[in-house]
Amino acid sequence: MDALKSAGRALIRSPSLAKQSWGGGGRHRKLPENWTDTRETLLEGMLFSLKYLGMTLVEQPKGEELSAAAIKRIVATAKASGKKLQKVTLKVSPRGIILTDNLTNQLIENVSIYRISYCTADKMHDKVFAYIAQSQHNQSLECHAFLCTKRKMAQAVTLTVAQAFKVAFEFWQVSKEEKEKRDKASQEGGDVLGARQDCTPPLKSLVATGNLLDLEETAKAPLSTVSANTTNMDEVPRPQALSGSSVVWELDDGLDEAFSRLAQSRTNPQVLDTGLTAQDMHYAQCLSPVDWDKPDSSGTEQDDLFSF
C-alpha cells in the first residue's frame, strides 16, 4: 500500500511530472533526481522514447528462454528487412502500455495491464526491452520488442512496467475491499429498513384510530445511509488515497477476473515476472533518469539497429 499512497501523494503535489519523457535525446524537461521519484509518476504514465523492432507469436506467457528466442527472431526479421526502425513513445501506467508513433502521434497499440504476463531486458541484446501480452483480438500470446538507447534504459522500462503492474494490483485490492464494505453496509441498511417496515402498523389501523404518522421519526431512520450505499452501487469504487486528485481509476471486468485468478494461483500475485536478476534490479533502481541518457562506457552510441 505504500507504493499506492506515495504515488497518489506525488501526483497530487505535481501532476505535471508524469508528462516528462525519457530517452528522447535531450528533449525532456528537468528530471527527478532518483528512481523513487520517477516511480511516483506512474499514475498518469511515464513516457519512454524507443524504437519498435516488431512482434512475434509465442506459445507460453512467460520465460527467459522463451523471450530470448522470440527477441532473436524479431531482431533477425528487422535486420533482414533493412528498413529504419519506427520511433515510438511507450506510455507506461497502472492501466497498461500505450504505444504511439512519434511522427504521426497515431495510436499503435493499447495493452491493458492485466494482459501483460512478462517483461524483460534481454541478456543477449542488452539494449532490447520486450514484453509478452495476450492479444486483445484473440487468445494468442505476442512478444513485442523495442530497441532502447542503452542497457540502462531497457532495464528502466522493464522495472517501470513491473512497478505499474504492482500498483494496478494494489488498486484492485483496495477497490475489492471498498466494494465488500459497501455491499455489507448496503445489506445491513436493508435489514434495518426491513425491520422498521415489519414493526410499522398498517396504514388502515392508523387511520381508524385517528393517529398521525410521525414524519420526524421517519426522517431519523437510516434511510439516507441505505440510499447512499445503493444509489451508486454500479459505480466502481476508487482508492481513497486518490481522493481529490485528477486521476480516475476504473476497474473493468477483465482486470477484476484476471487479478482474482492471480490472487488464487500465485504466492506473490502482485509481482510481474521479469528477466532481471536481483543485481540488475538493484543497479537500475539506483540510477537517476539522467543516467539513462548518458552514453555507455563501451563506446559511442549508434542510432541504428545494427549497432548491437
Rank of each mutant, 00 (worst) to 15 (best):
R261G: 05
D256M: 04
Y52F: 03
T41G: 13
A7W: 04
F129C: 08
G275D: 01
K184T: 13
I74H: 01
L50F: 03
C199Y: 15
H125G: 00
L262D: 02
S307P: 07
S175W: 08
W172F: 02
A278K: 09
T149K: 11
Q173P: 05
M124S: 08
P201R: 05
Q270V: 06
V174G: 08
I74F: 00
F48G: 01
L215E: 12
K84C: 12
L255N: 04
L99Y: 12
F48Q: 00
C286K: 03
T218S: 05
D280Q: 07
A278C: 09
D296S: 11
G54K: 00
P32N: 15
A70R: 01
E250D: 05
S6L: 15
G54N: 01
K83F: 06
R9W: 15
A195R: 14
L215F: 07
I132V: 04
A168I: 12
E235D: 07
R29C: 14
T89E: 10
L57T: 14
L4N: 11
R29H: 14
D256V: 04
G275Q: 04
S298I: 09
R27T: 15
F259N: 02
A195W: 02
G54E: 00
Q139A: 15
L272R: 02
F306N: 00
S81Q: 11
R115C: 04
L206K: 07
L223E: 10
W249D: 04
T230S: 11
L305I: 13
A70S: 01
M153V: 12
V75I: 04
V192F: 06
L272A: 04
A228R: 14
S14H: 09
S307Q: 07
S117I: 01
N34I: 11
Y131W: 03
L255W: 06
V92I: 12
A10E: 15
T38R: 15
P32F: 09
Q264I: 07
V128H: 00
E33N: 13
Q240I: 11
L4K: 07
R196H: 07
D37A: 12
P289Q: 10
A70H: 01
H28N: 14
K152M: 12
L212E: 04
L11D: 01
F129K: 00
R266E: 06
R13L: 15
D101K: 14
F171P: 04
A284F: 07
Q106I: 06
A156P: 00
R266T: 05
Q187L: 03
S112Q: 12
M124L: 07
T38G: 13
G194H: 11
D303I: 06
L99D: 00
V75H: 00
D253E: 15
E301S: 04
A80S: 15
P32T: 15
N229A: 12
T41H: 10
W22I: 06
Q197D: 03
G244D: 03
L4F: 11
E109A: 14
A164L: 10
V111Y: 13
M46P: 11
P289D: 05
N232Y: 04
S117V: 15
S67R: 00
Q155A: 05
A121D: 06
E44H: 10
T36D: 14
S6Q: 14
R39W: 04
R73S: 12
K91E: 05
G190I: 08
R73G: 09
H282E: 04
S245W: 13
Q106H: 14
C286W: 10
L255Y: 04
E33Y: 15
I12Y: 10
Q134F: 09
K294C: 10
L147Q: 00
Q264N: 08
T104Y: 07
N34Y: 07
L53H: 00
N34F: 03
N138E: 11
G45M: 08
A3S: 13
A7P: 13
E170C: 04
S140T: 15
K30D: 10
F259A: 03
S6M: 15
E216V: 06
L50R: 00
E180K: 14
L53S: 00
A78D: 00
I108M: 02
F165S: 02
G54I: 01
D101M: 15
L31C: 10
R39I: 03
C143L: 08
H282T: 10
S135P: 15
D2E: 07
V128W: 00
A162K: 04
T267F: 08
L99A: 15
L141M: 13
P237T: 06
N102P: 12
Q302G: 12
P15L: 01
G24K: 10
E109W: 06
I12T: 12
R13H: 12
R182C: 13
R151Q: 05
Q155W: 13
C119N: 01
M281H: 06
H137I: 13
D303C: 06
N102F: 07
S307Y: 09
Q173Y: 08
H125C: 00
A3Y: 10
